[in-house]
Simulated assay, not measured.
Amino acid sequence: MFWRFLGDVMFVLHAAFLLFFVIGAFLAWKWPKLIWAHLAIVVWNLAIVIVDYDCPFTGAEKYFRRRGGEIPYESGYINHYLDGHIWPEGATPIAEKVGFTLVVIGYIGFFIIQRRRRAKLRGESVGPRT
């Protein structure tokens, strides 16, 4: 029972990690210091996608489920839990592109907001002149 619970905890942590990957830059618009944690997660996810290795969260979840007497799923977390459930089956490459696009949009917005904040602190005009 304890091992299954740990498997569920890893499932939730993994979901939170992926959600933060997608929306973290947008959260940094409000809380700018989050950008550093988010940047680390972006680098982590880029490495997983580019190098194509298994995420340690997935490995830990499978380990705990195996110790709890369950037969772990064969594929990765995204293919098992999200592909065919959150988006159409087989659309994971498109979902990855959408996720990374949202990250880029979040970063563009973050840098625009930061630039405006700094200009405002210096007393510069940040909007159109009327």
Rank of each mutant, 00 (worst) to 15 (best):
M10K: 04
V22W: 15
W3P: 06
E89M: 13
L102M: 14
V12K: 05
G123T: 09
V43W: 00
D54G: 08
F57D: 04
G69F: 07
P88A: 13
R116M: 10
R115E: 03
R4Q: 08
L34W: 03
H14T: 02
Y63A: 13
I94N: 11
A37W: 13
F11Y: 10
G127M: 11
I108L: 10
F11N: 14
P72M: 03
I108G: 04
F111T: 04
P93K: 02
G127Y: 10
R117T: 01
F21S: 07
V43S: 00
I50A: 12
L6C: 12
W44G: 00
F11V: 06
T101M: 14
R122N: 14
K33M: 05
F64W: 11
Y53S: 09
L13N: 03
V49K: 04
L121E: 15
H38C: 07
K120L: 09
Y73H: 12
R116N: 03
R67I: 07
A15T: 10
R122T: 04
E70V: 04
Y107M: 13
E61A: 09
R4L: 08
T92Y: 02
G59N: 15
T92G: 01
R66N: 15
F2W: 07
I86L: 14
K30C: 08
A28N: 09
G59E: 13
A15H: 06
T58K: 08
M10D: 06
Y81W: 14
F64T: 07
D8M: 13
P32E: 05
I78Q: 11
R122G: 11
L6Y: 13
K97T: 09
F2M: 04
A91M: 08
R129G: 08
A16G: 13
F110T: 00
I35W: 01
E61S: 12
G99P: 06
R65A: 05
L34D: 02
Y53L: 14
M10T: 05
T92Q: 11
E124C: 07
K97R: 11
R129I: 15
W87M: 03
E70H: 06
G24Q: 01
T130L: 15
E124V: 05
V43Y: 00
R66P: 12
V51H: 12
F26C: 03
A37R: 07
P88L: 12
W44P: 00
R118I: 08
F20C: 12
G106S: 01
P56C: 03
R129D: 10
T130R: 14
P56T: 02
M10W: 07
G69V: 05
W36D: 04
